[in-house]
Computed example of a mutant assay.
Amino acid sequence: MTCGASITFDEAVAVLQREAQPLGVETTQLSTAGRRVLAEAVHARIDAPRYSAAAMDGFAVSAAESAGGACRVLGASYPGEPWLGRLKAGEAVRIMTGAAAPAGACRIIPLELVEENSGILSLPQVWPAKSHIRHKGCDIKIGQIMLAAGTLLDPRALLVAAAADVATVQTWRRPIVSVLASGDELVSPGKATELDYTIPDSLSEAILLLSRQYGAKPGSAALVADTRNAILAAAETMMSDCDVLVLIGGASRGDRDFAKAGLRPLGLDVRFSDVAMKPGKPVWYGRIGAKHIIGLPGNPTAALTTARLILAPLLRALEGRDLRSALNWQAMPLKNCPELIATRESFLCGTIEDGSVEILKSQSASSQLMLARANVLVRVPANQPTCAAGSVINALKF
């Protein structure tokens, strides 16, 4: 399918939803599985607790004891070093939190409720309401599903996986993203002061970082001239070790915009070309076999905006998560009252202040300094009249 006509942003996202399937499954050591997505559920290999255990520091006593009585203290039970006897009437064992409760124990009396003198324990006049014993398997049982497939292994989920006593988990492979920037005027940061009529490539590392934030592994980055042959040669080499190739620049219809043309000899199949959005209308997406190709405009704000809106959800889907998790729009009050009328749907840079969103002034696709302040994108429908301060708009974490 090749499509050269403009589509809406929502239609572009629907294309990505159809095209992006999780990559292959791999076995991952738990020590390196953080921020990965489970391809298979995690089942418990042990009970938790593995044995009935003390929930408080105190003394274990048997059911035969009466409130207000006294017991002989026979020994102590510690985590990993239990007291292995069986409690009988008139006996108690000092016990620490997490230690195995002795056989015959029915409750733990907290330390602060009792007195011990010369090995004799005076019991309280009234039993505590709780037994303070965590019984075997009360939290987790062997074979229980601990984490479902599709779970992101954040710190909480990683703790649960470790509690299941698994050393490895089955995860979706992380997509590898490489970035190819084209532009005769572009040089590596730090070089522009040495060469007239050049500007630093401010986008490549930013796009790789954004990719990493949305689940990808950074691949290679290259900077080439604005020619078909240069783009073709670099792309052919880079595609051998990436799943997603991001082209920066050459996306429009200028005399030297060769991004799509440079890749056609490799079998590029464009799935959408041009999106009715501002900024970033020239953004495009296609496939070369199993590889995903995204073309971003060269203007910095336009490129980073479309990367956040198009590349980020694509990566989420490829890593096994719901694509929509990257597009979590939130309704928020608008602080200022800018002129918002545009013939295309707009995604404007804003900042959150005091619980409301302020749309930054002087929105420009080529702006760079504005991005230092912007932390949200504000979605404004096409032909939207001026919004009054206090009205509700949709904002997305940038």
Rank of each mutant, 00 (worst) to 15 (best):
Phe59Leu: 01
Leu121Glu: 04
Leu123Ile: 04
Ser62Arg: 02
Ala55Ile: 04
Ala63His: 08
Leu111Glu: 15
Arg50Met: 12
Ser62Leu: 01
Pro49Arg: 09
Met56Gln: 02
Val42Lys: 11
Thr32Tyr: 11
Tyr51Glu: 13
Ser118Thr: 10
Arg45Ser: 11
Arg35Tyr: 08
Trp83Gly: 11
Thr97Met: 14
Met56Leu: 02
Cys106Gln: 14
Arg94Gln: 13
Arg36Phe: 07
Pro124Lys: 09
Ala70Val: 06
Ile120Cys: 13
Pro49Gly: 06
Val42Pro: 12
Gly119Ser: 12
Gly58Phe: 04
Leu30Pro: 07
Gln125Leu: 12
Arg45Cys: 06
Arg35Lys: 08
Thr32Phe: 14
Cys106Phe: 03
Val37Ser: 12
Gly34Tyr: 11
Phe59Gln: 01
Ser52Pro: 09
Ala70His: 07
Arg35Val: 00
Val42Cys: 10
Phe59His: 07
Thr97Trp: 04
Leu121Ile: 03
Gln29Glu: 13
Ala100Tyr: 00
Gly80Tyr: 06
Ala64Phe: 14
Leu123Cys: 04
Ser122Phe: 10
Gly90Cys: 03
Ala63Asn: 04
Thr28Pro: 00
Ala101Ile: 01
Trp83Arg: 07
Gly69Lys: 01
Arg72Ala: 10
Ala64Pro: 03
Glu81Arg: 13
Arg94Met: 09
Ser31Met: 08
Tyr51Trp: 13
